[in-house]
């Protein structure tokens, strides 16, 4: 790992869930780093543990049913133990999600919701200046400040969520399936926006997705996750061009809609593929 210059350096993260007495390990000793200003993807399917990993970084796991069993985070040179992870949220690592509507207050105007995040992370800031600035940064008309969430389209809501995240001035943005619920053309706009903002603010990005076309559009490095472990990692271009792991190869062929010699669509049985 390039720990010397890494902004985020996660070491041996292990997360388990307990439900009705059953213990399920969702993240099995995952190490991963993101350099300052870099865009890194975690790609995997449902159940791979990718979202759990992302939520762990910002202390957003359900308190009663989950446990961070091992792991440390180094962020900008400082070391955090599991019980301190939540202090990273906001000012250091901000997060956006697949369904922005569930993260917005339905009865509060957009401008107030953005102002909340601005003030929480910098009590001295003047939201009258910052809110229009942030809206401009996400390419929304400043009049949106007076709107309510239900009045906006899905793409606009995601822009609002990005504005709220930027309000905390994070050095790393964690985006969990940020475009999955959007139309293809809106997806493109949001990805372009994330790319542009990243460069403007020199902000790093950790993108969590199942969609290889999104990985290709935005990131420089990719980590492939299967059943709680990273089974392949490398530069996005090399990994997509010459995948090494059986699972990655299957994932790429399936995503392209490729068929086998019998004219059947390629399927990958996740449960049958060995991790190593």
């Amino acid at each position: 790992m390039q720990s010397s210059q890494a902004l985020l350096d996660v070491e041996g993260l292990r997360v388990a869930f307990t439900s009705r007495g059953n213990r399920v390990v969702a993240v099995r000793g995952v190490s991963l780093s993101v350099n300052a200003g870099e865009a890194v993807a975690i790609v995997g399917e449902s159940g791979s543990g990718k979202s759990t990993f992302a939520r762990t970084l910002v202390g957003l796991l359900p308190a009663h049913s989950s446990k961070i069993e091992a792991g440390t985070i180094r962020f900008a040179g400082q070391t955090y133990r599991p019980e301190q992870f939540k202090t990273l949220r906001g000012g250091k690592i901000a997060m956006i999600f697949q369904d922005p509507l569930s993260y917005l207050n339905p009865i509060m105007q957009i401008g107030k919701q953005i102002a909340e995040s601005v003030i929480r992370h910098d009590p001295a800031a003047n939201p009258r200046d910052r809110v229009p600035q942030l809206l401009e940064q996400v390419r929304l008309p400043t009049a949106v400040a007076q709107s309510y969430p239900h009045e906006l389209s899905g793409g606009m809501r995601q822009r609002v969520l990005i504005a709220i995240a930027l309000g905390c001035k994070p050095r790393l943005l964690v985006a969990d399936e940020p475009t999955t619920a959007l139309d293809v053309t809106t997806q493109e706009e949001i990805l372009d926006l994330i790319n542009a903002i990243r460069r403007e603010l020199d902000m790093a990005l950790l993108l969590i997705t199942h969609d290889l076309s999104v990985v290709a559009a935005v990131t420089e490095r990719v980590n492939v996750m299967l059943r709680g472990e990273i089974i392949e990692r490398g530069s996005t271009q090399d990994t997509l061009r010459t995948p090494q792991h059986l699972y990655t190869r299957g994932l790429i062929r399936a995503a392209r809609g490729e068929k086998d010699e019998r004219g059947r669509f390629i399927t990958v049985d996740q449960t049958l593929i060995p991790v190593n």
Binding site: V184, T185, Q187, E188, L212, S213, V215, A216, A217, T236, Q237, L240, R241, I252, A255, R256
Partner: peptide, 14 residues
Amino acid sequence: KRLVASAFRFVDAA
């Protein structure tokens, strides 16, 4: 054209 371009983005990258 736009639909095709975005759908086959990662095929081109490879």
